[in-house]
Design a protein around this nucleic acid. Structure first.
Length: 201
DNA sequence: GTTTAGATCAACT
DNA sequence: GTTGATCTAAACG
């Protein structure tokens, strides 16, 4: 599909409420997430609105972003700065929305997490998307995994549920002011906000 | 044309 | 000292 063609210009009434992905992101906060022997509680996420969101990799439909146009619950993994970052596809399929996992508190499998991350303070084991993926052993090999099916990767129920806070997403150059980053208050596993140097004022 | 690997540097700790 | 929905260039189909 052309970047400027097709579904992108359908009305929101047709596509559904783009804020659905934000609601889904909020729903993920406080849930347990287990991957490759490590269990964590998700403390920080970012919503990416697919074809409605210039900051989303799915804004342009290519083989790489194709996974986000598929069923929800699948894992979209990408590489950045030599690390990996993990997203959960939320749908609807025509929108290709996904939620980036940015922070988590490890509650089980600490030995394994330390083994993967080295000597760092416990609250930093899974702070930041790259560190989270590394602590949980998530790589490109996990692309397309169904997080509702397990067994290697499985999304759990809500473990804690305080009201989340919201603000702009970290390091995005486009749509830099959408407050689609959500996190739980008083969680040291939540990373700091950094605005992209070349983001529009 | 797309994906991947390998960097960059401003803002963070 | 770390980090990263950036950025470029080389390696793919």
């Amino acid at each position: 599909m052309q970047p400027n063609g097709g579904l992108r210009y359908l009305s929101l009434a047709t596509l559904g409420d783009v804020n659905d992905v934000v609601a889904r992101a909020q729903d993920l906060l406080g849930r347990t997430f287990r991957a490759h022997g490590v269990t964590a509680v998700i403390t920080e996420v970012e919503a990416y609105g697919g074809i409605t969101d210039p900051a989303s990799h799915a804004f342009v439909r290519t083989p790489r972003s194709e996974i986000m146009y598929g069923p929800s619950g699948r894992l979209y993994v990408y590489r950045i700065h030599g690390h990996h970052a993990a997203n959960i596809v939320t749908g609807p399929q025509e929108v290709a929305a996904a939620v980036l996992l940015r922070g988590a508190r490890i509650i089980d499998g600490l030995d394994l997490a330390y083994q993967r991350r080295g000597v760092v303070p416990e609250h930093q084991l899974a702070r930041g998307p790259g560190n989270l993926a590394k602590a949980l052993g998530i790589t490109m090999a996990d692309r397309g995994s169904d997080v509702t099916a397990g067994p290697a990767i499985i999304l759990g129920e809500r473990a804690i549920g305080p009201e989340p806070l919201a603000g702009p997403r970290v390091g995005v150059r486009r749509a830099a002011d959408r407050p689609w980053r959500l996190w739980l208050p008083d969680e040291p596993s939540v990373s700091a906000y950094r605005r992209h140097p070349r983001a529009e004022p």
